[in-house]
Design a protein around this nucleic acid. Structure first.
Lengths: 163, 163
DNA sequence: CTCAGTGCAAAGGATTTGCATGCCG
DNA sequence: CGGCATGCAAATCCTTTGCACTGAG
């Protein structure tokens, strides 16, 4: 249990560390919720990881967190729009920070180990995509909130491990 | 339990009914599995629905199916590449036939009720998408198998129900 | 003092598995 | 006959919930 977490990617970002918490606090307040130490710890772990984490990974990253509280607070953060639950191929729910806090991106989902990495696509394509999706939604009377573009396959590790 | 299922969409398709089973049988054989009545029933239910179904929906559509066998056989069919497990917003796994049997498409996922509808996008965009994704995969040493483009929002029913 | 947040332990619920039986090959 | 498929029931395991405690306002 409690898996390890990859280091903070390249090391970019970082700039808006304080800004991050300010924004989170704002969103929580808007939802009449407090920004408690436990919730702050969750946000920090997710921000440091820079990719969607399972609850176990989150717990493993900061053992001051109790399992039930982690689940409960991730729920609170999700309702406040601070984090999103990401569903992959395996049976574990993963959480990541809202895109407003990290930038719009997509996921590379490993069909073997279930891990998730982020990537982005060209802005032009992204725009064309948005237009096309909006049209499709209109056709179906569907009120689109956001889109999800994932690439499913083998991560470098699993591919190297020969499957 | 056991939810109802929407009627076979428009009524199109149908043409390759026999062909469908032939293909499924082939894939199962390639995986050294038999095409038993129970498995055939699953395929038929999924084909008739024309959209991803939860296990409960599948069971409700044909009560000759036992729950454990349904789960087991969906697993067999998935390993044989006949069906795919689709994960949405709620806690229920859904299954749909492989795209080779139904055509490439995307999903409109309702964030309220979890239901899923299919849609397609322009071929040009699809191509641009594929190219861009291939490039991203290459950059990350990721061996892409397929992509997944979903639109998340409110289905017509939930939107009409005022949320 | 009051109420939200927290932890522990127990409950919940979709999915999986053990085992005995039936059928296809 | 041998092995796989099937059903039932029991077991699993991630996630949620009940309850008592603690700290902030």
């Amino acid at each position: 249990m409690a898996a390890r977490i990859a280091p903070p990617a390249g090391g970019a970002d970082g700039a808006a560390a304080g800004e991050l918490h300010t924004t989170v606090a704002q969103r929580l307040r808007a939802d009449e919720q407090r920004y408690t130490p436990g919730r702050r710890a969750l946000v920090e772990v997710l921000a440091a990881a820079g990719r969607p984490l399972t609850v176990d990974e989150v717990l493993g990253a900061d053992d001051s967190l109790a399992q039930s509280s982690a689940y409960r607070n991730l729920g609170v953060l999700e309702r406040a729009g601070v984090v999103h639950r990401v569903v992959t191929a395996d049976e574990f729910a993963r959480y990541e920070l809202d895109e407003a806090l990290t930038g719009h991106h997509h996921h590379l989902i490993c069909s073997v180990c279930g891990s998730v990495a982020d990537f982005t696509v060209d802005a032009d394509l992204e725009r064309a995509l948005a237009d096309s999706l909006a049209a499709a939604a209109r056709r179906h009377g569907f009120a689109a909130e956001h889109h999800r573009l994932d690439l499913v396959g083998l991560c470098a590790d699993c591919a190297a491990a020969g499957r």
